[in-house]
Design a protein around this nucleic acid. Structure first.
Lengths: 246, 246
DNA sequence: ATGGATTGTTCTGTAATACAGAACAGTTGC
DNA sequence: GCAACTGTTCTGTATTACAGAACAATCCAT
């Protein structure tokens, strides 16, 4: 559409692909003519966000980190949540993810892995978006949304089947959200990824609005769910207190 | 210039400013007419990278993290360096920063703080650029650059005075780089920031090219320099071995 | 309350450029 | 050496980015 939209769209795609990509591959992936792909790529190269290898293929440069650093350090929730996140991951051995609602997606704004496996590079999860209907954090964000917005989203969201267990029926999703509200936490049992089970609880601000979801992910059957939920509820209460205090 | 350049430039600035900014402030900072600032801001809003508060001011959204996550998880050095970084920060209590040369700047692509003060949010340092002549990592990157490129940069770089101790003379900088090469590490004693002392060592690839600089930062006089350099040299040797092995 | 100043937004005709397709050139593989 | 790819450059047309000014909506002082 607009050059800015093209550029950012392409940059997102490029950043997600570690291997350098040629013009034709880019054009194919974006559904563009080659000339357009070439024009956008050179524009990105000029501003330093993309670079061209000697073999003429393109890749995203680490300059994209410049954009992220400001948001990372300034987001008020992040600063509060990072120590809490570390605490929960160390207590349970699960991966911890803090997500907010962004458009129609659940967006991870802070992540941590238990100390023992830092090399897993939890940063790969940072900034990832997840479908609201298939992720534990997403269900929490939906469940505590103001009713008007919740109805709107429930009617509008596409509900693609990501695994055999994904909820793809709007009525069943609405029921699930009700029970999430009732029990105070959400579960995701291999509905998003065949090998991941996640529990999630809401984090509230001073006006009892849900501003984020705090989740702990594990392989199926690794850790007792009840224990995980207990840790989460305690952490969430602390976070909510911290936010209200500010 | 081009819409893409405008948009990314503005997004960088916006991401660096935690407080939401109005159109006039943006126009002033960018040196643009108000109409142009407004146009670019609405374009960013449409693609979801900026959001408008109820009071009509604009801020960058966490969506910028989407761009960063791919690069962060895919950069081959990062995966290798993160555990090493953690090790060095815990051994010395300093902040650890791994930088690469990007254009005329030293760019931090991986950071860590000692476990005790995770709440400092070391991620604020991630993606930051530093002047090559005033940072320890920058001096290392310069010192081990192929001579042709080094001469070029030395002639072209602006050398702004950031603190009273900054090296602003090209000849003195050239001498400093020689002694950096000779002793195998670089020092930055309050030349970049009045309250920061940094040591840095080069990280080589399999062809003995310097691909990154590994630095440890501290407040002046906190930790013995010799001890820091010893830790750094050991870490760098390990990293260099790891890279060559791949 | 009523002015005056400052904010964000919309409008305008002109000038710049983004656009798709095709022609070109440079590599790779058989 | 030919063929089937690559990436890049060229072209005229249609789109839109552009700066400045007019507009509207808000704030702040008296």
């Amino acid at each position: 559409m607009s050059p800015l939209h093209d550029g950012l769209h392409l940059l997102e795609w490029l950043a997600d692909h570690p291997e350098p990509q040629g013009v034709t591959a880019v054009a194919g992936a974006m559904g563009w003519p080659k000339s357009r792909a070439h024009r956008v790529l050179t524009a990105l190269k000029v501003v330093g966000y993309a670079a061209q290898d000697p073999d003429r293929r393109y890749r995203a440069t680490p300059q994209v980190l410049r954009l992220a650093s400001g948001v990372m350090s300034s987001h008020p929730l992040r600063a509060l949540a990072l120590p809490v996140l570390r605490q929960t991951t160390q207590a349970t051995g699960c991966d911890g993810i803090l997500s907010v609602l962004h458009g129609d997606w659940s967006l991870a704004i802070a992540v941590d892995s238990p100390a023992g496996r830092l090399s897993d590079d939890p940063f790969g999860l940072l900034g990832r978006t997840a479908h609201l209907h298939a992720a534990a954090n997403g269900k929490v964000l939906l469940a505590w949304l103001p009713l008007v917005e919740q109805r709107d989203l429930l009617a509008r969201l596409p509900l693609p089947r990501l695994t055999p267990r994904t909820i793809t029926d709007r009525e069943r999703l609405a029921e699930a959200l009700e029970s999430v509200r009732a029990q105070g936490y959400a579960m995701n049992d291999r509905e998003n990824h065949p090998d991941t089970v996640t529990c999630s609880v809401p984090v509230f601000d001073g006006f009892h609005r849900c501003v984020a979801a705090l989740g702990l992910s594990q392989r199926p059957g690794q850790v007792e769910i009840k224990a995980v939920v207990a840790v989460l509820k305690k952490a969430s209460a602390g976070l909510t207190r911290g936010i209200a205090g500010v």
